[in-house]
Design a protein around this nucleic acid. Structure first.
Lengths: 219, 219
DNA sequence: ATCAAATGTTAACGTTGTCAACATTTGCCC
DNA sequence: GGGCAAATGTTGACAACGTTAACATTTGAT
């Protein structure tokens, strides 16, 4: 049996609240709230991602989310975690079919920028100050670390293949992360509107190329 | 005569609001509000930077700010603008005494990261999503453009001195901006907490060096 | 079957952004 | 100087929000 998600609880509407009067228990409210939040963040942006709006979209009362998320911050953390997982998946996917380690590495960076520019609001939540301490949410911290780990591994792979300079792969990966994250943040925060939007891919290639010029070993 | 700033309006307190009952007109409320907002953003962070708190700190009523700022967003834009001006000043200052164009260029980048890590909350407001369209605030757009212009000019100078590859200086500057902005954002958003905080300067040098490796012409 | 735990609801509280209505002050024009 | 409009302040209201307390319903273990 498929799980019901969002506000599709059965039965008829409550005359006062207008909320569909479903079975008292939702069945999988946590997941439904997360889906509702993800939908909200894309449609109305991070500012419109409120607990009450999420509850409305999921078809439950304003206080129901507190059984599953301790606070708005906790909901944002869950949304951010989901973002890191989606980002990681997108990066893996775009690197999968590249044979050359350098190509794989570049694909990761381009996918990062691609994710940011195609899901700007979601990307912002992933780095929003509202989640003051990421490490208070271990699942979030782990999802974020996995994304960074992808870069570190790719660098190490390039080094093993003799295609990138020696050095601590973490340090090199930090430089790489900084470039792609920086361009992503500038794009998402509309600091580059003069050039926006078609040239994002072009800028991404240019910017990552500048970095490679510094990392790659020429024969 | 010196201008009164913040809540130092004369006379005695109002028995109900507790607010000092000063002369009805403040004299320079816009500036006082801006100073109050700058103080707030450093003490309580971007989330605590509310219109009402700003008004309280400036010693005026909750609605008074609306005579000078159309909305909270407008106040945030003014704070952001002030941030870009401070950043530009810091960058200029740290590059002033460098003779070599490359050194000047690196100083700009290090100053950028230095500003971000020493004023994280202010830095966040400068790139916050609440100010949806920077170009709705021409003074803000201009202040931001000036900071970017600093980088572009420094690159062009390096090129004239034959120290950096040929190419559109804007494009090269974008790569540079991306690196320093990316590292700044990662530091400010506490993505690098394992390494934090003493190593920021070290990371900054490392990361900018990686970029230079790609830009600088070796003899 | 019973009863505690899990999970939902309603109703409040304080805070916020914003606006309308009103008050005071300032500065200009005669 | 006197009067009057504009500038700039105040008060009081409203809706939306996060959060909590008190209560209701359902579920699952014994």
């Amino acid at each position: 049996m498929t799980k019901r998600i969002l506000s599709s609880r059965a039965r008829r509407e409550h005359p006062k609240t207008g909320r569909p009067r479903g079975p008292y228990h939702h069945g999988n409210l946590r997941e439904a709230l997360l889906q509702a939040a993800l939908r909200l963040v894309e449609t109305v942006g991070p500012g419109g991602l409120t607990l009450r709006a999420t509850a409305r979209l999921a078809g439950v009362s304003q206080a129901a989310p507190y059984r599953h998320f301790a606070s708005r911050e906790a909901l944002l953390a869950a949304v951010a975690e989901e973002g890191f997982r989606a980002l990681t998946a997108m990066q893996r996917d775009s690197a999968r079919h590249k044979g050359d380690p350098i190509d794989r590495f570049q694909a990761l960076g381009l996918a990062y920028i691609g994710f940011a520019s195609s899901h700007p609001s979601h990307f912002r939540v992933m780095f929003a100050p509202e989640v003051a301490d990421k490490f208070a949410y271990p699942a979030l911290a782990e999802a974020a670390a996995e994304a960074f780990g992808l870069l570190v591994d790719a660098i190490a792979e390039c080094q093993r293949a003799g295609k990138v300079k020696e050095g601590d792969p973490k340090e090199l990966a930090l430089a790489a992360w900084s470039v792609v994250h920086g361009l992503s943040a500038l794009v998402v925060d509309r600091q580059l509107s003069e050039l926006y939007p078609v040239k994002v891919e072009e800028m991404a290639r240019s910017v990552t190329q500048r970095l490679f010029d510094g990392l790659v070993l020429d024969p």
